[in-house]
Each structure stands twice: as C-alpha cells, then as structure tokens.
Simulated scan of single mutants.
Amino acid sequence: MLTISPIPAFNDNYIWHLTRNGEHWVVDPGDAAPVMAELGDTPLSGILITHHHYDHTGGIAELRSRYQCPVIGPASIDGVTDPIADGDQLELLGMPMQVLAVPGHTLDHLALVLHESRDGRDRQHLFCGDTLFAAGCGRLFEGTPAQMHASLGKLAALPPQTLVYCAHEYTLANLRFAEAAEPGNSAVANRLSEVKALRAEQRVTLPSSIGEELATNPFLRCHVPAVAHRAAGHCGMESADEVEVFACLRRWKDSF
C-alpha cells in the first residue's frame, strides 16, 4: 500500500515522503537533516524535484552522498541524475507517473502525477511544488501571468478526486485572501473554519483535492463573474479576461 506523509522543514515547507513495498522516496528535500531523521537506518530509494528553488533542492547533495540514490527532476538543476520533461511517463514505486510542465513560478517547474490503483479503484496523487497551493498559487518569479494561468488550467483539468500535495503550509493565509476575493462563496467560508481549527492544533491541512481547489481557490476561479468583478475592481478595471483577472489576483495577493 502506498503511504504519503509530510516531513516538516524550515518554517512552513513540507518534504513529501512516499513509501511502498519497502521503497522510500522524497519530494523536494530542501533540507537533508529532517529526511535523515525520518528515515533513521532505512535507505532512501530516490529523490523527486519539482523546481530549482533552494528550499526544494538544498538537501540533494547531502542525501546523494549518504544514500547514492537517483535524483529525478528538471535538467536545469545541479544534482539531478535522471532528467525529466513535459509528457514523460515513468514508473515509480511500481506505479505509473506522468510529468507535466507547469511554468510560472519558475520556468523549469514540473508537476508529477502518480497513478495508484487500490481496491479496484484508481487514485491520482499530484505533487505540484509551488505552482498550485491549497487555496492559492505560487508567486511569479520567472514566468508570466499567461504561463501560470495555463499551468493552473492544466492541473485543474485533472480528475476532481486527485489529491494535491503542495510544498508549503500556506492554507490559512490563502483562504483569508480567497474570502476577500470571493466573499459570497460559502465553500470558502466552510473551508476557512475547518482550517482554522486544524492550525489551532498545529495540524497539517494537506493534501487537498482538485475538486476542493476548484470550489475554493480564486486562482482557479478566474472565470467566475464574482471573482472577475472583484479582481478587476481591485486593479481599477471595469472588466478583464481570465488572464487579466489572474494577474490582478496575483498582484493583489502579493500585497495582501
């Protein structure tokens, strides 16, 4: 059985730990120390990387030195031993994994979709780094609004039951912005209440699902008139197309 659990790192990062049939993989190990503490004497089978930011890659060299394991990720990243690119189909932990290019946060950003079959049913697990967050999305450090909007659209098209494993615990702050961007959305209000309770107990708010994001994430709701009206108004525009709505939302969130 596949098990996925978060290893906390830094202030709000999650390094995702995947285990199945005695194999152990981690996603975006920005720090080697918490990974080694989690594993103890257990060998690390491999590392998955979504993009080049140091809080996602800083542990590669030390983990590689200790475990001599493969590192799968964008070709642009030092330490990657097995480069991957958009459209690649791999096998990981005995299951198929799909690679999607999702530029915007960075130009080299990839998302990884692991396909699990359990009890006769298919389940998908999305490891999206800093592209899609619970109720939010990443800042545009390198890409354009059009690129990020297209990348989010690619992820939003995944099945609604797809589980979303982003790399930061930003959910509470993101939902507070979502409430401002779409104050009449009862799904946002309900999710905000649930997440406040979880964070009051220092509990993890992830994974979410694509269905939950479609209902509550303003960056996936640029087509919704209420969101478009609020975003355009914030930017001093009477109306805007979806990319312009996204750009307005992102600028608004940057200073929220």
Results as ranks from 00 to 15, higher is better:
residue 2 L to Y: 08
residue 7 I to L: 11
residue 10 F to P: 02
residue 10 F to N: 14
residue 10 F to A: 15
residue 11 N to C: 03
residue 17 H to L: 07
residue 22 G to A: 10
residue 22 G to D: 08
residue 27 V to L: 15
residue 29 P to W: 00
residue 30 G to R: 08
residue 37 A to Q: 14
residue 40 G to L: 07
residue 42 T to K: 09
residue 46 G to H: 09
residue 50 T to N: 15
residue 50 T to I: 04
residue 51 H to Y: 04
residue 52 H to C: 04
residue 54 Y to R: 13
residue 55 D to C: 05
residue 57 T to D: 11
residue 58 G to A: 07
residue 59 G to S: 11
residue 64 R to T: 15
residue 65 S to L: 13
residue 66 R to M: 11
residue 69 C to H: 06
residue 69 C to L: 09
residue 74 P to S: 09
residue 76 S to H: 04
residue 76 S to F: 05
residue 76 S to M: 10
residue 84 I to G: 00
residue 86 D to S: 09
residue 96 P to T: 11
residue 98 Q to G: 02
residue 99 V to W: 00
residue 99 V to G: 00
residue 100 L to C: 01
residue 104 G to R: 03
residue 106 T to V: 06
residue 108 D to Y: 09
residue 112 L to W: 00
residue 112 L to G: 02
residue 118 R to V: 14
residue 120 G to L: 10
residue 128 C to F: 01
residue 130 D to I: 01
residue 130 D to N: 15
residue 137 C to L: 02
residue 139 R to K: 10
residue 140 L to S: 04
residue 142 E to V: 03
residue 142 E to F: 05
residue 147 Q to Y: 10
residue 151 S to P: 10
residue 152 L to C: 00
residue 155 L to Q: 12
residue 156 A to N: 01
residue 157 A to G: 04
residue 159 P to L: 11
residue 160 P to F: 05
residue 160 P to L: 07
residue 163 L to K: 15
residue 178 A to W: 06
residue 179 E to D: 08
residue 180 A to P: 02
residue 183 P to V: 05
residue 183 P to G: 06
residue 185 N to T: 04
residue 186 S to G: 03
residue 187 A to D: 15
residue 190 N to L: 11
residue 192 L to P: 09
residue 198 L to F: 04
residue 199 R to S: 06
residue 207 P to Y: 07
residue 212 E to G: 15
residue 212 E to A: 15
residue 213 E to L: 14
residue 216 T to L: 01
residue 221 R to H: 03
residue 224 V to D: 15
residue 229 H to Y: 03
residue 230 R to I: 07
residue 232 A to P: 12
residue 233 G to M: 10
residue 234 H to N: 07
residue 235 C to V: 07
residue 237 M to L: 15
residue 237 M to I: 03
residue 240 A to C: 03
residue 242 E to A: 14
residue 243 V to A: 07
residue 251 R to S: 14
residue 251 R to M: 04
residue 252 W to Y: 03
residue 256 F to Q: 11
